[in-house]
Structures are given as structure tokens and as C-alpha cells.
Design a protein around this nucleic acid. Structure first.
Lengths: 348, 348
DNA sequence: TGACAGAATTGGAACGTTCCAAATATCTAA
DNA sequence: TTAGATATTTGGAACGTTCCAATTCTGTCA
């Protein structure tokens, strides 16, 4: 039942031309006569020919495989799902397909996944590196002429392009907003200090404090896992300080949700009793109670930008490392206390 | 700078054996001497050899490409993101990689994407078909011996395996629950009537009404787009009936959210003034206000089951169509009015 | 008519692997 | 010491494409 594959030679025979001509047709060459082209195409349709990219890639450079690899840390997180969608949009319309894989923050898995993609001959790679990824890990790829674009988290030292959001400006505007509301003791909660993103956001926090005319105090910076649980821990520490914090900017939305949990467990209402601001604007931020004030980063946009950058490099044939930071904006909702909780929004 | 690819022949030369031996090592054959194997492996590491799957696939059947295609309708929807993660888990640990693509419910795009995947030589396909997909669309694939597993929505008439959740039982238990709470006028809101999923859920609604000792009334079934906006429309119609509905089961959670919006716009509070139950248990359902009572379907589990089924068929070498329905369960939260709104949950 | 240019076509030789049949090396028992 | 196993290794010949150089076809012009 499983018929033998129909190949370019079968087509040639049936159309009464040579395989070379068929190949020319396949590539849309202008060398071939209109009449023959039509005939060949007809025969192809008739015999149900399917192009064998594998065979083609054997001859051509791998740059023509039209596969681009995408590796993210956690597809369950809607942030990364959106990112992948953004990538898919531009990649797909350029006639590429995407290999998508999940690392779950595991460096080993990341290595495996990338190796596997390489074996399959990807023409480019977009990666949101797992925590503590070694900048040298992507060296072999670039050496082999495969463009790599790092997104979301940058990889200092690696000579690859990157697309990251403006963490510093975002955090700064968040802090500034709280200062404008009259807060003096503003904490920075959550996140692991060994990441580039943490550094950027912390820097934003410092300049925000400065811009608001406030002093920077070491004890107001409390790191923790960048998760809901981590947020709970962090707020616990922030509330036992001698001079208590009255507001907090959080490393990300997950931390912010954890902070809200922790506040409630201590009979404090987020928003009215203590102001909290998140970062990322994940999809749940809007629906939460109170709705989370947060810095919106447009992951889909990052995906699109990253993909465009990658395609550009693939087409150029050489990878000129380039860094783009995408704009962010503060979305003021309820958790910072700036607005009363008003429900009844028009649906959609 | 871009050095020529290092091939199996280079390895052979450097290790002082023949390319055939190297190939044997690559495949982990037991025919080759331990010593030689070690030496060859050492040389491979030293020269930075990367396996060329494309070349290999040329010789072997495409069943060995170790690529499996995954196509979903909307990765932005966390339901499908979870599904993809489930697939990735089993697929990855079996040494396969996944091609993931988004169709956005477009049949044309689906066709393109599947064609492209086929050109790349996938060894199997998992697809959540776009609306109104023709059952015959996957015929060529199966004819070529490529196993296909349909998930989430089944494709009556297509002779392929499928993994769907037990829509009927789920909707039935939802209706039964509302009936037990004393509701008599229970509406069925949202969804497009031309889909298999709609039929199943509607059937569940009917049997739930019956089980609750209630009559089925045509006017209580109001279809609409399966989206938040659609939910708003549907509830609007449900509230102008002569004999008003007091509760509704919704086609999915998105519709349910829209229904809640619509209720509030009319100064009715979901939960206390009107009971609403969703379907899917998307991630936002828990965090919403009021928390949504819904039927939980475990998309990740569907993904895993689907992938397992597919791998089984790939290994078996032939596709025996098989249907599995996965269990669902009603998660009672606040929107059905069964519980008071109690917050303060322990954060994770 | 012949020479020539341009347009269209074509036969191999790659590409990097696997597979087969056959060759060689090593061991065992008489 | 040798026949017969058994264990290892090995040259091609595929696989389905693209690319190159070379060929054949068409017309045009002197």
C-alpha cells in the first residue's frame, strides 16, 4: 500500500523532460520555457509529488533548510507562549517552519535540544536561554555560520544578537509612579541576583528612587525565587524590617501575586494597605483581584522582532551581532492603590 | 571562517577505519569492537562532528526522521500551550523533536503548514484541526504511511486516531450540578453548531437536563462564536426570553467570561444572581472574580496521550486507527453560586 | 546558406549517510 | 595445523536533490 515515493525523476519521465529541467521548475527559474513549466507542474500535481527538502539540503548550504529553531524556558507561561506566536507569525510568512522546544530552565535539556536542532540542520536559532547558560554554549553554532538571536534574557559575553525589553526604563517608571503616590519606603522584591535581567531591573529601581528624590537602602532589596512562592517569602522579610516598607516593585508578576498572597495572610489588603507593582503583564494580571499594576512588555512583539532580526541575518549570510531593546509601558490598575476597584468593564 | 562540514569520512580517515565502521558506531551497533568504538567516539568529539540527519533520512525511511509535527489552532490560548507542552514532554524524551505551528483556525494556513511539514519529512503528525477541516485532508498523509493523531476535536470520517476529552460526560455533570442547586431554566450558551465538539457538549447538556428531571427547550440553546465576545452576545439573548434562564452552562471558558461581563453590564452578579459554568478550566479560571466553576480537561494529559499514541504507531510501522477519550471533572468554584467567595488561599 | 547569439535543455557528478554482500581477522576444537 | 565458526571490518551502490559545463534548439542577420 505504501507506494514508493515519487521523485523528480518520475516527474521528468512522465513529462518527457530531464530531471534537471524539473529541478529548474521547482526553483522557479526563469530559464525554463513557459510551456514546459506548465506541463511539469501539471504532472507534479497529477502524480502527487512532494518535494524532499532533506535531499535538497544535502546539496545546498544548510542556510536553505528553512527551519528555524526556537527554544524557550516554559511554554506553560503565557509570556513565552505569546513570544512563540510572535516568532511563528513572521517565520511562517517567510516560508520557514519553526522547531519549538521547551527547556524547563534545564541547561542540560537546552544543550540536548540545541544539539538535536543542529543535527536537523536549522538555518537559525532563537533562544531564551535557561538560567546560568554559559555564553560559550552557542559558540559552535555561530562558528558554523548559523545565526543565533537571544531573546528576553541577554547573554553578556556571547557575540550574538539579542532582543530584550527595556527592563531598566520599565522598573524606573514603576518606582517613579509609587514615589509620585507618596511612598517613601519602596522595596524591590524577588528574582535571582545572578541574572542579567535582575541587574537591569535593579538598576532601574535605583534610578527610579533617585528620580523620586529617595535614598537607596540595601535592606529594601530582597531577592528570592522569581515565583509566586518566592514572592510570599520576600514580602515576609520586607514586613519585619524596623522601618517597614509601604510599597514594593516586584521582579515579575508571579512574585507580585505571591506578595499579594502574603499580604492577605497578614490581613493586609494589597492596593489599599500596601502598594504592589509587578513586571511582565502576564495574562492573569488583568483578571486578578486586585487587578495588578504592572509593566507591560509585549512578548509577541519581542518574538516578532527577534524573528525579523534572525531572518535578516540568514538572508545576509553573515551574522552581525546587534542588540535591540523593545519599549515597555506601565499599566496602572488597582494593586498600587492609585485606583478604586471598579469592575464592570466592557467585555473584550 | 565557516569551515567545511566534518563528515563521517573525515572521522573514518582520522580514526583509521572505514566510513562503514563509523556509521555502525553512530547507530550503536553491537557488531563493532569496543576498542574501535571508543576510538571513533573520541575522534568524533575531537573534530566536533555533527550528525547530518538529512543525509541519513535520504537512505532510511522517513519514519526515522525523528521529527513529529504538531499543529494547533491558537497557541495564545493556554489550553493549546499546555497541550503542546504535554506533547513535547513525551516526544522529547523519546528522542524526537517537535515542529510546532499555529493555524489561527485558518484552513488554508493549516494546509500550507502540513504540506511544509511533509516536505521536511515528519515521521508523524499531531493536529488539532481547524474548524471545518475536511476529513479527506489528511488522506494523502496516511496513504504515505505517516501516522496522524487528531486531538481535541475529532474528525468524523477520517480514518485516523484521535484523543478527545469526554465532552458529553463533562457537560452532563455540569448541568446536573446546576440542577442539584435548584435551577430549572438552564441555558446552553456559545459555540458554533457545525463542530463535533459542539454536538458532543450539547448532547451532554440534553442528558444532564434529563438526568435532572428537566425538560429540554430549544430556545435555551443559544449558539455564538466561542469567544469572550460571543459570550456577551449569547447572554444578552438569554436574558430577554419570556421565561428567563437563571443559570447557564457555557461552551467554553472564554464564553463563560463573556457571559460574566454581560451579566455585570446588566447589574447582575455572576454567582449570586445568575449561575454560570464554563468548560476547559483554562488557567485564568481560577484567578477570575468570581472564580469560575468549570469542567477541567487536562490539556497537557491530552497532549501526552496523543504523543504516546503517535509514537506507538510510528514504532509499529502501521497506523491502526484508535480513539481514546480522556476523563474530565467538574471543578466547583464560585461562579455557580455554590460557594461563598472566600479568598486568602495559601499561595502555591 | 552559414555563422552566431541567445534561449532552453541536459547528463553527470556531487552532497553525507546507510545498507548489502563480501572480505578479512580471530578464535575454537579436533 | 587446519577447517570451520564467529567476530569485525569494508568497499561500493544507493537515496533525491542541485549544480556545472556542455549541448541542442531557435531564430536573426549578412
Amino acid at each position: 500500500m505504501t507506494k514508493a515515493r515519487v521523485t523528480v525523476i518520475d516527474i521528468a519521465k512522465a513529462a518527457g523532460v530531464s530531471k534537471s529541467t524539473v529541478s529548474l521548475v521547482l526553483q522557479g527559474s526563469s530559464l525554463v520555457n513557459e510551456g514546459t513549466r506548465a506541463k511539469v507542474n501539471a504532472v507534479m500535481r497529477e502524480l502527487g509529488y512532494v518535494y524532499n527538502r532533506g535531499a535538497a539540503n544535502l546539496r545546498q548550504a544548510s542556510a536553505k533548510s528553512r527551519i528555524i529553531g526556537v527554544v524557550v524556558n516554559d511554554l506553560t507561561n503565557s509570556f513565552f507562549a505569546e513570544l512563540a506566536v510572535g516568532v511563528d507569525m513572521v517565520v511562517q510568512s517567510a516560508g520557514f517552519v519553526q522547531f519549538l522546544s521547551n527547556t524547563s530552565e534545564s541547561i542540560d535539556r537546552q544543550r540536548e535540544v540545541v544539539a538535536s536542532m543542529r543535527e536537523h540542520g536549522i538555518s537559525g536559532l532563537i533562544v531564551s536561554p535557561a538560567r546560568a547558560t554559559d555564553a560559550a554554549d552557542f559558540k559552535p553554532l555561530v562558528a558554523a555560520g548559523i545565526p543565533v538571536v537571544v531573546v528576553v534574557r541577554n547573554l553578556p559575553g556571547a557575540k550574538v544578537s539579542s532582543v530584550v525589553s527595556d527592563n531598566q526604563a520599565g522598573m524606573m517608571s514603576a518606582v517613579k509612579h509609587l514615589a509620585d503616590l507618596g511612598h517613601k519606603r519602596i522595596a524591590f522584591l524577588g528574582g535571582f541576583p545572578d541574572t542579567a535581567v535582575f541587574d537591569d531591573r535593579l538598576a532601574g529601581y535605583r534610578s527610579g528612587m533617585e528620580a523620586g528624590g529617595l535614598d537607596y537602602h540595601q535592606e529594601l532589596v530582597i531577592s528570592s525565587a522569581p515565583s509566586r512562592a518566592g514572592g510570599g517569602e520576600a514580602i515576609g522579610k520586607a514586613l519585619v524590617l524596623a522601618d517597614k516598607a509601604t510599597a514594593a516593585v516586584c521582579f515579575n508578576d508571579a512574585v507580585a501575586f505571591g506578595v499579594c498572597d502574603g499580604l492577605r495572610a497578614r490581613r493586609l489588603e494589597p492596593g489599599s494597605d500596601f502598594a504592589v507593582v509587578g513586571f511582565d503583564d502576564v495574562i492573569e494580571a488583568q483578571a486578578a483581584v486586585p487587578a495588578l499594576t504592572t509593566v507591560s512588555v509585549d512578548p509577541q512583539g519581542i518574538g516578532r522582532r527577534g524573528a525579523q532580526l534572525l531572518l535578516k541575518q540568514i538572508n545576509a549570510g553573515k551574522a552581525e551581532a546587534e542588540t535591540v531593546t523593545t519599549a515597555v509601558r506601565l499599566v496602572v490598575r488597582e494593586s498600587c492603590g492609585a485606583r478604586k476597584s471598579v469592575k464592570i468593564e466592557t467585555g473584550l
